[in-house]
């Protein structure tokens, strides 16, 4: 089980290899790639920034939690830095004895990562302007604050 935040370009090959095993008949992979448009505007580039220490911890926690929930093996990697349309921004994989659990875990993991891992994106448009994308605060309610103090 693993999660990484790494500078663009990311390579999911080792993660994919790690997930494959003789007892898993179903492997599901999701690739999130940079789209060339957003809300009617042409997007020419994306910049991802992370709170890396916390993103790593939170991502690993989500991978472990969802893997345990569905009884699957799971991994994910998220890129940071400057990306262009078509580039790989996030990769999620889940492996299970049967496909249903793998599909469900992969789906839930990408949704959870988008909402809860502290990573933010800034879009650059065809006119040269760039803006931070506004997030949805629904992730706050979904992520109960965990009180961890020494």
């Amino acid at each position: 089980m693993t999660f990484q935040v790494a500078p663009h370009p990311i390579d999911p090959a080792p993660f994919r290899a790690e997930l494959a095993s003789r007892d898993c008949g179903g492997l599901v992979f999701f690739e999130g790639r940079v789209r060339d448009h957003h809300e009617g505007r042409t997007v020419t580039g994306l910049h991802y920034e992370a709170y890396r220490e916390l993103a790593g911890k939170e991502g690993r926690r989500l991978v472990a939690e969802i893997a345990a929930k569905y009884g699957v093996r799971a991994a994910a990697i998220h890129a940071i830095g400057d990306l262009s349309p078509g580039d790989l921004a996030v990769w999620v994989g889940a492996a299970a004895p049967h496909r249903e659990q793998a599909f469900a875990a992969c789906r839930e993991l990408i949704d959870a990562i988008k909402m809860q891992v502290p990573i933010w994106k800034r879009e650059t448009y065809a006119n040269g302007k760039s803006e931070w994308v506004e997030g949805c605060s629904c992730g706050v309610a979904q992520a109960p604050d965990r009180l961890v103090r020494p």
Partner: peptide
């Protein structure tokens, strides 16, 4: 949690909703 006590030297970050993926 937001009512967490602050201690000297704590490193605090306020985080807007995530927009990764």
């Amino acid at each position: 949690a937001r009512d967490c006590r602050l201690h000297p030297g704590d490193r605090v970050a306020f985080l807007l909703p995530s927009t990764g993926g």
